[in-house]
Design a protein around this nucleic acid. Structure first.
Length: 565
RNA sequence: CGGGGCGUAGCGCAGCGGUAGCGCGCUUGGUUUGGGACCAAGAGGUCGGCAGUUCAAACCUGCCCGCCCCGACCA
């Protein structure tokens, strides 16, 4: 491809709206153009890279035994009502009506459709296992798209779905997909760590996310450097930090004028946060819930949701707190009636806590559980943070940010049961298939790849996903000798099978070198009057400091060698 | 949805009552020529939209729309 004719114009200034490096680079190279919030057009340069990412994904999916399918974007809303996901998705699900007022949805994911498709071909256990996948556009009306291609409303996703006859078989499928994912990320040139993830309201037990560590990531995950345990912060289990034990003492009221926060209380009483109980109020599926947790910890809303099996939850507003008769700043579950009470297991670690007295300006000392209150539910609902101790080995957690580039998920039988996708077992009974699902956002993966493979001059994409292998520049292209020689090199490179972007523009050397670095293809070849006198071309890797001079006719071989490094 | 910010030329921005500017990019001509060259002449704008105030609105007021960031949210 000749750059003079290619649909690609680079920008010299960074576009104002881009905050992250990958977004800036994609805009400056002209790869993408924003059409609306979270909606992008893809120029040829981007499409070439996306196609390569897709090819890698296809290759690994096929190797893992996947069969490619294509499921519809437009689906009847009724189908989503049948599985309850019309309600579960809420406003993220795009809905519309056809000319006959029939209600449709634009699919954000495809469990329903794939279950119906596979169901038709699955009658016996002999038909299992099955693994199907597609690469297709998803629509999700995200509340806040952000970060270029990292979170968008319309995006291409590889989604795979497995159907197994039993749990052991699903385990095998799952492991095969995990390995395929590791291969995919490695081939795209990014490090990805597999972490335990929340499995959400629907479905089964196991769920893992693949996270590329980066400070621009939306997700926080914790890792144990000692035993390798890694989990999303919204999921991570940890040991509650110890607190002084002791014989329960009688409750004692303390006048605490104006004290509202744990920090206030700690200062006033001269104690530590582990010696206090904190009260947090949530409205969970419309019902007020009183949450107790030790003062040194924070409530993790995802864990809370899971403990209560809830769909929706939010912090109670001041009005809601007041209406429930609770005293914000001086509340405790002691003597609480008529309101659901839940607690983190940390309330059992330690003794003689300071807590609210349920009247303004008063707290209590020496609150003990279960002596003074027994919550309706107790579980792990605390947020794991750096420094907390690993449940497996006691190591001190470290915390990092990252971008979720893939997830694998054991769905269980939720969809096969609600859509009646059953098979006949060897014993002759009808069984629902045990499902798994596996997703990779193609555009997000490209964004992550760019974020990780770049320097201050531009991208440094691995050959596996670079739009082109070679950037060929003719300096002083209006010089007939240079033009002819560069043309010849271009022809030879192309014949040798290298995807070459030939910069035949009438631009100065500086412009071409800067664009070459910005595009960041793995190898750069330069034909110029200076070196043409010796019959030579310059060949350089994007990540090398120095170039080598080789005879013009050796350029393809040198390129091949450099690409192999 | 809560909070903050921004919409003026393809990109980055200035102008903040007197009728449109700068840099980059673009066009033409000339001079240059190995890391974003120089000179000259040009092209390009319903100043996000609608209403209002005013002799006069990019600028003031109101409403709306769009976009960005933080948070909430995100099987």
């Amino acid at each position: 491809m000749r750059l003079s004719q290619f649909l690609a114009k680079t920008l010299r200034d960074d576009p104002a709206e881009a905050e992250t490096a990958n977004h800036r680079l994609m805009l400056r190279t002209g790869m993408i153009q924003q059409l609306a919030a979270g909606v992008y057009s893809y120029a040829p340069l981007a499409l070439r890279s996306l196609a390569k990412v897709e090819a890698i994904v296809r290759d690994e999916m096929n190797a893992a035994g996947g069969q490619e399918v294509k499921l519809p974007t437009l689906q009847p809303r009724e189908l989503w009502q049948q599985t309850g996901r019309d309600a579960a998705f809420g406003p993220d699900l795009m809905r519309l009506k056809d000319r006959r007022e029939r209600e449709l949805v634009i699919a954000p994911t495809h469990e329903e459709a794939v279950t119906l498709l596979v169901k038709q071909h699955m009658q016996s256990y002999r038909d299992l296992p099955q693994l199907v996948y597609q690469i297709q556009t998803k629509f999700r009306d995200e509340p806040r798209p952000r970060g270029g291609l990292v979170r968008v409303r319309e995006f291409d996703m590889k989604d795979a779905y497995s159907f197994d006859a039993d749990a052991d078989s699903l385990d095998e499928t799952y492991q095969r997909m995990v390995q395929a994912y590791r291969n995919i990320f490695s081939r795209c040139g990014i490090p990805a760590v597999m972490i335990e993830a929340d499995s959400g309201a629907i479905g089964g037990k196991d769920s893992h996310e693949f996270i590329m560590p980066t400070e621009i990531g939306e997700d926080t995950f914790i890792q144990c450097p000692d035993c390798g345990y890694a989990a999303n912060a919204e999921r991570a289990a940890f040991q509650r930090p110890p607190a002084a034990p002791g014989e329960p003492l009688p409750i004692e009221d303390v006048h605490t004028p104006g004290l509202k926060t744990i920090a206030d209380l700690v200062d006033f009483l001269g104690i530590t946060p582990e010696q206090t109980l904190k009260a947090v109020f949530y409205v969970v599926d419309g019902e007020m819930v009183f949450v107790s947790i030790r003062g040194d910890l924070e409530v993790n809303e995802v864990k809370l949701k899971r403990l209560l099996g809830a769909n929706e939850l939010h912090h109670a507003s001041d009005e809601e707190v007041e209406a429930a008769g609770l005293v914000a700043g001086s509340a405790s579950a002691v003597g609480l009636t008529g309101i659901k009470s839940v607690a983190d297991e940390s309330i059992y670690v330690g003794a003689n806590f300071a807590a609210g007295a349920n009247r303004p300006d008063w707290h209590m000392k020496n609150v003990n559980t279960p002596r003074d209150f027994v919550p309706d539910a107790v579980g792990d609902i605390a947020l794991a943070e750096a420094g907390h101790r690993c449940v497996h080995c006691g190591g001190a957690f470290i915390s990092e940010r990252g971008v979720e580039v893939g997830h694998v998920f054991k769905l269980g039988t939720f969809f096969s049961e609600s859509l009646n996708a059953t098979f006949l077992s060897p014993e002759g009974s009808l069984q629902p298939a045990i499902m798994g699902c596996y997703g990779i956002g193609i555009g997000r993966l490209l964004a992550a790849t760019i974020e990780h493979n770049r320097d201050e001059r531009g991208m440094r994409l691995p050959a596996s996903v670079s739009p082109f292998q070679v950037y060929l520049a003719a300096l002083n292209a209006e010089d007939a000798n240079v033009a002819a020689a560069a043309d010849d090199v271009y022809r030879k490179l192309t014949e040798a099978g290298f995807e070459t972007l030939f910069d035949d523009r009438a631009e100065s050397a500086g412009v071409k070198f800067n664009d070459a670095d910005l595009f960041g293809f793995p190898v750069r070849v330069v034909v110029s009057p200076r070196n043409l006198r010796e019959g030579k071309a310059e060949v350089k890797r994007r990540d090398a400091d120095l170039a080598q001079l080789v005879p013009l006719e050796d350029a393809p071989a040198t390129v091949a060698a450099l690409l192999d490094e």
